[in-house]
Nucleic acid binder design. Sequence first.
DNA 1: CTGTTAGCGCGTTCAG
DNA 2: CTGAACGCGCTAACAG
Lengths: 341, 341
Amino acid sequence: MKRRITLQDIALDLNLTPATVSRALNNHPEISDKTKKMVEETATRLDYNRNKIASSLRSGKTHVIGVLIPTAEPAFFGSVIHGITNIANSSGYDVIIYQSNEMYEYEVKGIKAFMSARVDGILASISKETIDCSHFINAKRNGIPVVLFDRVNNDLDIPSVTVDDYQGGFIATEHLIEQGYKRIAHVSGPQHIKAFYDRLKGYRGALQANGIRFDASLVYAGDISIEAGKAAVENFLKLPVRPDAIFAVEDFAALGVIKQLKARGIKMPEEMGVFGFCNDLFSEHITPGLSTIDQQTVLMGQEAVKMIFHIIDNNNGMYQPSKVVLDPLPVIRESSLRVST
Amino acid sequence: MKRRITLQDIALDLNLTPATVSRALNNHPEISDKTKKMVEETATRLDYNRNKIASSLRSGKTHVIGVLIPTAEPAFFGSVIHGITNIANSSGYDVIIYQSNEMYEYEVKGIKAFMSARVDGILASISKETIDCSHFINAKRNGIPVVLFDRVNNDLDIPSVTVDDYQGGFIATEHLIEQGYKRIAHVSGPQHIKAFYDRLKGYRGALQANGIRFDASLVYAGDISIEAGKAAVENFLKLPVRPDAIFAVEDFAALGVIKQLKARGIKMPEEMGVFGFCNDLFSEHITPGLSTIDQQTVLMGQEAVKMIFHIIDNNNGMYQPSKVVLDPLPVIRESSLRVST
DNA sequence: CTGTTAGCGCGTTCAG
DNA sequence: CTGAACGCGCTAACAG
């Protein structure tokens, strides 16, 4: 392995000092164009490659963003990462990924790793287990700005990018009502996660706005999993009066609902309407096509990076936490579309 | 923002020198247990957090792995990342992600960024455009080991983790033959990518092994996209004698095939058998369920990290590039399963 | 416009 | 078992 070329090497080659070479490469205004050109030429000739580590140590900026997600497995977070890294990379930032695997312990470890790596900013989506959020507060106290996306905490003074979950739940439920469904059930998710809490609220809001009495037995305390959806169906079918539509808190849960309804020979959308939330990649391609709420995942990632860049650039102390709320986009497919009332 | 705690702070607090504190925290054998305990206590008390940057600069090791993928959008790469980061993180490594967006230019930029970040190793899956691979050679020359996964180059002396694509193509085709299909078509992908090239070869191999003459008109030069699958179907239906089964090089292409066959009212698997490759998340949930080859994505990621760690640990020059080839696992679903011949 | 000096925080010599 | 001194490669401050 050949020794790496340093600023020193370029400087010696041109009878300059490392400092000048550094400034030239950083396009410092006080360097003559002639020198800049010379330096750049020898840099490429010698195949120079800046040591980002040394640069970071000296400048105190790493140009690295840490992204903490529950898991990269479903398409959802892959899509957000897609949005994040493309913008970050084209702005000269590196992105490091850490997965909590939905566990509080790993989430805390991830933040520690980010602090140790001296990232310039953190984007995070909290795990299902997470209730105590002091690790985020701690990062902020250490001067690392944090932006939460999608899965945020209810009462945290941290900027965030989310979709309007209340509105999404409202739209989904109201759509089912408009399609003539009378008894609409809901498969909910863990309530300490604001997104899931808000979707339930949106569901209730739509019922109320349309003069339908809320019936607690029509809410199944589920989760974002296929199994939860299946279990919810079994639960609903045992009721004295079964529902005629199900709004699931998330697409995988809705998928479970669909699978179980199929297994029971219940026709969608005729006998039972189904609505999801997320617009995961598969939703379009299953049968029946799943009606759902698009969360604009790529955009969500992009907005989150933009926000963190904004905070990084204005770190003169006074930054007021802002919340970006994206519009939930209804995507209507066969699972909820009755031809006529 | 409070100043970050350094080794110096701990040293002052305990009347020691930074050197001793450093050794204590690194569990150096020549430090007394008593001192180690003291140091660790004050470290946690002062909320010390090692500056990885300074450490990297000094030691020459960053404990960072760069992962270059075409795109994080489909579930496939998300799944690989899942496998990679979990092992890497639990081994104290950070993972930085870069997307080529299937473009050669960005791929080269990504490798440059990794070199600049002084990553200890690179895992990469090459873009569709990539033909010249000198950027990988260059990284190796600079002492950064490279392991390719899934999308590798034909004639490169670089260790890699792939699935046995020939075998996969063979199994898929032979399965269709066993199901009684007589005219089996193939939607192929860009041939400079070894994986796609091998799948075509496996297809031909299975035909030959079963005494079926290869017919060039039954191979559609496609791509890994829904559109390619749809176009392939249109192409095949125009033939004088249409095929009765289609093996697509990848699941999205197969999805396009299924969609177009549905649009044309052609029944699967009765009139046309369909087989994919990848076992993407959606394949199980569409109708009909897509028969496909599972690539063991999570395992692939894990094997890739393990291999790069192995190389990093034995960087005493002599490491012979090895190729790990995973078994392709057939997953048979409705799209190719005729009840009887 | 360029050179000089110094130091970011750590780990690794070499002493003792 | 611990301390003293140095340097990884770069950039910021101050000269000139």
